[in-house]
C-alpha cells in the first residue's frame, strides 16, 4: 500500500473544519428542534476529508460535469453534509439555521433540486449505492475521470438493495467508485448486532467482489490513505469500513443510541458547544 505524504498543517486544518462542522450540526438541529445529530457527528470527519482534501469540486459551479460526485446514502446525516457544503462555500453558513423549516433550501433529508452541491436526493435508506453505481457507469461511458463516493450507514446495510448494488458494482468493475460504511454500531432500535446484524461487513463486501479497507473513521490521515489506496485499486470497487463513534465529539452523545434522531435542547446544545472548542 502506497503512503502519501500529508502535511501536518493540512491535518490541522481538517481538524479545525471538522470542529466547526460539528458545532454547526449541534446548532442546526437544536434550532430545528429535530434531526439526527448522532449519525451526523459520526461521519463528519469522513465528509470533511472528502470535501476539503479529496474531491475535485467547484462550489461556484456545483453542476460542473467533470466534478467528483458524492451520494449521502444515509440521508439522515444531512446536517453534516449541509454544514460541510456551507463551509466549502456552496451557500452562506447563515442558511444552516433554516434546516427543516418551511421554505428552506435545507430539507430534512438531502434534496438535489433545492440545495447547491447535493448530487443526489436521498433519505430512504438503501438507495444511494445504486445511484452511485449509475454515476460511475456514466463516467466510464463518457471516458471521464471523475470519481464517485457514497456513504452508507451500517444499519443501512440491512436493506436488500444495498447488496443488489454491491453485486452490480463489482460485476461492472466500478473502480471509480468508493463506498464508505459509517460503522458506528448503532441504529434507532439499538446496537446493530442486536437489531439485525449486518456483520461481518468486511467479509460480506469481500464476498461480493469488493476491495475492502478498514480505517478509523476519525483519523484524517487514515481516511486519506484509504482513499488513495481506493484510487489505485483497479478492476473492482473499494469499500472503506470506517469505525466511528456515534455522537463523536460530544461526550454525552457518544455511543448513545438515543441521540440517533433527537435534537438537543437549547441547554444541551450550549453544553455541547462548550465541549466543541
Amino acid at each position: 500500500m502506497i503512503k502519501v505524504a500529508i502535511a501536518k498543517e493540512k491535518l490541522e486544518e481538517l481538524k479545525h473544519i471538522a470542529r466547526r462542522v460539528r458545532r454547526h450540526i449541534i446548532e442546526m438541529t437544536a434550532e430545528a428542534g429535530s434531526g439526527h445529530p448522532g449519525g451526523s457527528l459520526s461521519c463528519t470527519d469522513i465528509l470533511v476529508t472528502l470535501y476539503f482534501h479529496v474531491m475535485k469540486v467547484d462550489p461556484k459551479n456545483p453542476d460542473w460535469p467533470d466534478r467528483d460526485r458524492f451520494v449521502l446514502s444515509k440521508g439522515h446525516a444531512a446536517p453534516a453534509l449541509y454544514a460541510v457544503l456551507a463551509e466549502k462555500g456552496y451557500f452562506p453558513v447563515e442558511e444552516l439555521k433554516t434546516l427543516r423549516k418551511i421554505d428552506s433550501i435545507l430539507q430534512g433529508h438531502p434534496d438535489m433540486k433545492k440545495t447547491p452541491g447535493v448530487d443526489m436526493t436521498t433519505g430512504s435508506l438503501g438507495q444511494g449505492l445504486s445511484v452511485a453505481n449509475g454515476m460511475a457507469i456514466a463516467g466510464k461511458l463518457d471516458g471521464k475521470d471523475y470519481r464517485v463516493y457514497a456513504l452508507l450507514g451500517d444499519g443501512e446495510l440491512e436493506e436488500g438493495q444495498v447488496w443488489e448494488a454491491a453485486m452490480a458494482a463489482a460485476h461492472y468493475k466500478l473502480d471509480n467508485l468508493t463506498a464508505f460504511v459509517d460503522h458506528n454500531g448503532l441504529q434507532i432500535d439499538g446496537p446493530i448486532t442486536q437489531v439485525m446484524s449486518p456483520e461481518i461487513i468486511q467479509e460480506k463486501f469481500k464476498a461480493f467482489g469488493w476491495h475492502v479497507i478498514d480505517v478509523d473513521g476519525h483519523d484524517f490521515e487514515g481516511i486519506i490513505q484509504a482513499i488513495e489506496e481506493a484510487k489505485t485499486t483497479k478492476g473492482r470497487p473499494t469499500v472503506i469500513v470506517a469505525q466511528t463513534v456515534k455522537g463523536k465529539g460530544v461526550p454525552f452523545m457518544e455511543n448513545q443510541v438515543d441521540w440517533h434522531g433527537k435534537a438537543p435542547s437549547r441547554e444541551q446544545a450550549e453544553e455541547a458547544l462548550k465541549l466543541l472548542v
Binding site: V71, G128, S130, A132, G139, G160, Q161, E164, A165, A168
Partner: peptide, 23 residues
Amino acid sequence: FFNMGIAEQNLIGTAAGLATCGK
C-alpha cells in the same frame, strides 16, 4: 446496454444515477 440481473430496485436506482449525469 446494462443488464442489471434480477434486481429491480438496483435497476431503478442505477438508472437514476445515470440520469444525474445527463444520460
